[in-house]
Design a protein around this nucleic acid. Sequence first.
DNA 1: TCCGTTTATCATATCGTTTTCACACTCCGC
DNA 2: GCGGAGTGTGAAAACGATATGATAAACGGA
Lengths: 356, 356
Amino acid sequence: MINGSKSRSTLKQIAKFCGVSHTTVSMVINQNPRISAETREKVMVAIKKFNYYPNVAARSLVMSRTNTIGIFGTMFDSPYYNEIIRGIEMECRHSNVDLKIYNCNGSLEDFNDFYDRILGERRIDAVIVLSVPMEDAVLERFQKEDLPLIILQPVSIEGPNHLLEKIPTLQAEDRKGVYKAVTYLISLGHKKIGFVNGPEHLKICQDRLAGYRDALRDNNIPYQEQNVVYSHVKPDAFTMDAGYQVGKELIDRMPDLTALCCVSDTMAIGVMKALRHKGRAVPEDISIVGFDDTYVARLADPSLTTLHQPLLEMGKASVTLAHAFLSKKPVEHLHRGFEVELIIRESTGKPKNSKK
Amino acid sequence: MINGSKSRSTLKQIAKFCGVSHTTVSMVINQNPRISAETREKVMVAIKKFNYYPNVAARSLVMSRTNTIGIFGTMFDSPYYNEIIRGIEMECRHSNVDLKIYNCNGSLEDFNDFYDRILGERRIDAVIVLSVPMEDAVLERFQKEDLPLIILQPVSIEGPNHLLEKIPTLQAEDRKGVYKAVTYLISLGHKKIGFVNGPEHLKICQDRLAGYRDALRDNNIPYQEQNVVYSHVKPDAFTMDAGYQVGKELIDRMPDLTALCCVSDTMAIGVMKALRHKGRAVPEDISIVGFDDTYVARLADPSLTTLHQPLLEMGKASVTLAHAFLSKKPVEHLHRGFEVELIIRESTGKPKNSKK
DNA sequence: TCCGTTTATCATATCGTTTTCACACTCCGC
DNA sequence: GCGGAGTGTGAAAACGATATGATAAACGGA
């Protein structure tokens, strides 16, 4: 009605024009080998001539497939998520499936507000969840619906979920990543290394802290609780302002630190600002490492040494995984980790009174 | 097949359970007043009980409406576009239409690659185009299809398009915005004000330069070509690196300038970096104004005085406009401008030898 | 009692595909 | 010249909703 499809051609019209049944046309479109080459050719010409495209609604109805995947998650907040979504979009476009986005601001409540309806109405074939804490009740719902669910960068609020084990997840190997960064700092001669963390109840923060401890342990440097600071700033604990605040706190408490490892780039920038305001130069007086390698890392002055996650790859891989589940193909690894790489830029250097 | 919809209930099942015809159930769902209160109640209870949701594919087929809008454009590159898309997504969610995204990297060629098919298959009801240069051939196609098209932040490569006049556009009032910024700098006492521009063939760059000239003229300051520099850096002329490069060029050529107005925040940050490397302090030696008020403006140190565009509002408005077109409602203004606001932060101050 | 009007419900057609199954035709060997 | 295999084709039934016009029931007025 509203979209008066005046000049739109249908399969039936093509069939009529070609003097064949519409079944034949459908078979041509779906590349059915039982159609003779000449018939196929004749139909193809007509399709071109009338600029015919199959109607996806009709197709969806009979196939019960929308050729669309949906992503629920945190969005537009940071370049971090952007990069993942860019990867998802790329792969979707490449494989000709549409991508619908639903921003639930990383909150389970917001997620609950609308996923039920969207799933119920079969608006999408598969769901990618990006950094939204999941609870078992929700996961059960997905399993019951038989709707593929991929979890990207899982966050669990309270310990590991019961069902999470059975659901495919993709995540960066944070722990190993931080290990690399701290090992690098140690190799430069640093011994007094601080850690600027996010909320301790988040899994990623626990993982990253573990990487820090691993590196200290392997280099015989005792772990000291006073060298770690946790941001609980609301609503987002990983911002520049949060970094400024807790960074200052840590520096005041432990003025001897010669290097700081931060769990996000924006926090690291906040920390650098705090240091500058205290008259301490980066990297001459103190070295700083970020996390994420978002483009603000390059924007900073000095540019940030940071940990690069293959976000684009992770985004693409999540779509590939969704596809595999849709076509019921066996999936080799249910849980996949992605290597984190250390990117060395200007914000790190040897400590001041290093003998090296 | 692939999505075995085992436990999914249909309208027919609900009807059977209630002992009414499926027409009746449909009418209940669509709030048709011809249904008696008690029947309605009975049906509603069953709907709840079976957790029934109407299948959108079936509905789309008969209504020829997908309840989905698509956005084609530049994406994930900068916080600037993010903010617009966030607005679009917000309004979509609010009005319960789905949003499909297609990243064509701001290029008309990429756009041409896939819009034809997506339109032909009727995957979406309306299109929002974000900062993609349009040519008449494409616009004609949309008009022929009778598919609502909204253009956000139009960019024309070669002069104004012929059909662009008839198509709804939303854009920020760049010219007035820059006027405000330059006027502000003048009010601080600046007289030697430079302008760091993007490629001169882009409409936005022409508009912004015009605002700069307007302000100078109204304050009896002669316009001098040497005070303007154009970035032609590929592939993106508005980056920090571009700003660094052309900013340095301008400073070297015109060392007397006491203030610089830049056409993007990231460029402004690049310019600041160049200044710092030359030993000139911001804002003590030279004032800097950015454009866009993306979050990097706050991240910068000193934080950037910049021009704020109501990006969120613009995004929302574009969806509202699409809705109006879809329901054939009359639209009052085909071309809408959005006010640009000056945000004063730390990167601007009085010139050094100001008498004020 | 009969008829007209309103009210509530239903039977049926429709949207544009895919899919199944039956049919017709050709070709071949016996 | 007759069954059987192999090929192409088409009629008809889904898929799950909306929309239209018909029908049955209820009611009031003459």
